[in-house]
């Protein structure tokens, strides 16, 4: 077996052959896609506000509407194509959160509706909720202690 220094020397050699990601292009595409999704979300919010909803309520309904859209586009097989272009631009908006749930749920349907689909649908969303809730409890406490 190769020792550590041989391994390191090889990793150096391999590095020269590995193409770099297109940082600029990826960032630009992420910016455009993420920006467009945000602008769409703004439109949805404005619509709810125009019906006389309170601001916080409109925000919650916007999130729900965007989750619906993300879930629908995933089901139709469109969202993963958008993600090839958008990268983080489509993964990080809340529509991307919906995509992680629907894609995993669809994928694991073949392993059953309880231990397959229902258990595995949180494969990627689960960590987000776990870290979100835990960090929120701590952060909420800190904020309360800091600002009262």
């Amino acid at each position: 077996m190769a020792n550590k220094s041989q391994q390191q020397a090889y990793q150096q050699l391999a590095k020269k052959h590995i193409p770099k990601p297109d940082y600029l292009g990826n960032s630009l595409r992420a910016f455009l896609v993420g920006g467009a999704i945000s602008a769409l979300g703004q439109g949805v919010t404005n619509f709810y506000l125009s019906t006389g909803m309170a601001e916080s309520e409109a925000g919650a309904y916007t999130a729900i509407t965007m989750i619906f859209l993300g879930a629908l586009l995933t089901g139709l097989g469109i969202y993963d194509n958008l993600a090839k272009i958008g990268g983080a631009g489509s993964a990080l908006p809340i529509t991307g959160f919906a995509n992680t749930i629907v894609s995993a749920a669809m994928d694991f349907k073949s392993e059953g509706y309880v231990l397959g689909m229902a258990a595995q649908m949180y494969k990627i969303a689960g960590p987000v909720i776990t870290y979100g809730v835990t960090s929120a409890i701590l952060a909420g406490l800190v904020k309360w202690l800091l600002w009262g």
Binding site: I18, P19, K20, P21, D22, N26, T74, G75, G77, Y79, D80, L82, A83, K84, G86, G87, A88, S90, A91, G96, N99, T100, V102, S103, A104, M106, D107, F108, K123, I124
Partner: peptide, 10 residues
């Protein structure tokens, strides 16, 4: 998962 939106590295 197949329909998960992932961007694959080069």
């Amino acid at each position: 998962p197949i329909e998960l939106g992932v961007q694959r590295p080069p």
